[in-house]
């Protein structure tokens, strides 16, 4: 397994209280595998991604427990220097907002080249040459390497971000809502580009999104996150065709279906629970249409069948809770 995360728990200590952002998340990503991490805003997706890079700001963040192993190495055991050699080199990240994630006062060429120079034994000139090649790879004319981020459109900036992430040929890319900030027409282009380059560079990918359409395009496994937990995980087909968790089903009902006559969107009623004050029992029970008495008190244990994991008392009625 390329990446294996076991029981990751992250919290933030704030004035309002302790925010339980990630509560016991476990998942694996094999070589060349693509996992889609789906969920509403505030479900803990970005926190999960940042903990993989060990970029959680401390304070206020605290990684309580959890084991992250990547290429057989335990990332928590690495020193800061060793971790730097992994960031941008073995695991790299594409961020959500291309308007703010590039440095406004540095040329895009330099911003790509410095990643290369940091990890590969290369002179500045060679790194710059490689950076120009990377720009061509993301369909930006290499001659524009001297330009600054403000001279590019949102979609192009995100492509610069992709070039930066791929520059050192990483084993894994974490893409944190890479298309959320873009126009719909540009989203498709960027997703297609990412998929093509992932195949060309044969990297694994973790795609964070709340857009199930994007997941269907790119991923082969899907994990659904809710209130800091993975409530369901399975192959693309399992999740799209045979979703088990009421929350996953609710997410799909939020997408209008043009084949059906009565194609009204059915939103999930209620709001995500306050991460400072999570409900007892199953976190989803206050919003769950199939909530039972037991859900209010017992935290459902994971139930796995044919590689599809679900955390819901509907399936573990007799099982022991955590």
């Amino acid at each position: 397994m390329l990446l294996s995360v076991k029981d990751l728990c992250v919290k933030y200590v704030t004035f309002e209280g302790i925010v339980h952002a990630v509560n016991g998340v476990s998942f694996d990503i094999p070589e060349r595998g693509t996992l889609g991490l789906v969920g509403e805003s505030g479900a803990g997706k970005t926190t999960t991604a940042l903990s993989l890079m060990r970029l959680i700001p401390v304070p206020p963040g605290i990684v309580e427990r959890g084991k992250i192993s990547f290429e057989g190495r335990d990332l928590d055991a690495l020193s800061g220097e060793e971790m730097k050699k992994i960031r941008g080199n073995r695991i790299s990240m594409i961020f959500q907002d291309p308007m703010t994630s590039l440095n406004p006062v540095l040329t895009v060429g330099l911003q790509i080249a410095e990643t290369i120079a940091a990890h590969q034994n290369m002179s500045e000139r060679e790194a710059m040459k490689k950076a120009r090649e990377m720009l061509e790879k993301v369909q930006i004319p290499a001659a524009r390497y001297k330009e600054y981020p403000h001279e590019f459109s949102g979609g192009m900036r995100q492509r610069v971000g992709i070039a930066m992430a791929l520059a050192c040929n990483p084993r894994m890319i974490i893409a944190d809502e890479p298309t959320t900030a873009l126009d719909v027409t540009i989203q498709a282009q960027v997703i297609e580009l990412m998929r093509d380059l992932r195949d060309e560079f044969s990297t694994a990918m973790m795609l964070i999104t709340h857009d199930l359409g994007v997941v269907g395009e790119v991923c082969d496994r899907v994990a659904v996150m809710y209130a800091g937990e993975i409530v369901e995980e399975g192959s693309l087909e399992q999740i799209f065709e045979h979703a088990r968790h009421p929350y996953t089903n609710g997410l799909f009902r939020c997408i209008p279906d043009i084949d059906e006559d009565n194609s009204r969107i059915q939103p999930i009623s209620g709001l995500m629970p306050d991460p400072c004050d999570l409900p007892a029992g199953c976190c989803f029970h206050p919003r769950c249409p199939e909530c039972m008495e037991i859900c209010r008190t017992r935290k459902p244990a994971p139930f796995t069948e044919n590689g599809q994991m679900v955390r819901c008392c509907l399936y573990t009625r007799g099982g022991a809770g955590q």
Partner: peptide
């Protein structure tokens, strides 16, 4: 965000401070 990006690229702390932070 761009400082976080710089960290995510695995750059040296000194380089981040001098090139990415101070210039702004």
């Amino acid at each position: 965000d761009y400082v976080r990006t710089a960290k995510a690229k695995g750059l040296n702390g000194r380089l981040i401070l001098l090139r990415h932070i101070m210039s702004n």
